[in-house]
Amino acid sequence: MAFYDRMMSIDRRIIFLSVGLAVAIPIIVPLGFPVQISEETMNFYREMAALKPGDIILLSFDYEGDVMAELNPMAVAVLKHAFSRGIKVIAITTYAGGTGIAERLLTEAANRYGKTYGVDYVFLGYNPDWSGTMLRLGESFKATYPTDQYGKSVYEIPIMKNVETYRDIALVVSISGSALSEYWAIWAGGRYGARVISGNTAIQAILIYPYYKAGQIPGFLGGLKGAAEYEKLINAPGMGIRGMDAQSVAHALMLAFILVGNVGYFLFRRAKRREQK
């Protein structure tokens, strides 16, 4: 077998093992690569930092377990930032599978900062049909969610007392593993004038740029890197920063594999051309 053939036909199990080691080793032995802050993350941070104590944000958990590795660090950081500054949180989820995740993260953050359920935060739970939910919240929060996740009437929940529509919400924060951040921008932002920022999986982040560029989403966090940058800005290192060493090493390895595959391909093409002559 020619050398270029070997370069182009590396056993996929060797690739899997290499990627596994490239991710595992930096998690066990941190390398401490620096985290640079991007403009999008800085603007996300500025939107959050501009809120005053007592302001209310709507935090939408637009994801399920499949992408929680990327999005949990963002949601945790948003909750830490909000609770540490006395900002109140109304949380919802647009995915049935997001209920357990939202409940756990809210409870952990609230316990850490000594926040009271119903006064400092509330979890309204899952509502079927996310599009109808986004639109109806613009008409009435209380009609959209007559009760919280645990069946208590929203009329008996103090934080909900003065919340009628998006006008009473300082900021909508969508943490999303799908296109739902775009829909928040389209409906909550475009139709009802709510200010929307988002945290997105890396795959979705690329689709957020046009909205960011046009000012429809004034700040966003892109993937685990965005989470790490935000953790650094709020001085609360968490799973995002811890994962960035592994991310960098794995990316370097991928680049090496892409390089090897391409060099192999060019050598193969050159050999073919020589054969034809």
Binding site: V19, I28, A69, E70, A202, G222, L224, A246, M254
Partner: peptide
């Protein structure tokens, strides 16, 4: 898009390894 895709997939693996370790 491909670059972001790689980052997303690696992040999922990082999340699992963080859970295991």
């Amino acid at each position: 898009t491909f670059g972001y895709n790689v980052m997303g997939r690696v992040s999922l693996l990082i999340g699992r390894f963080q859970f295991l370790f």
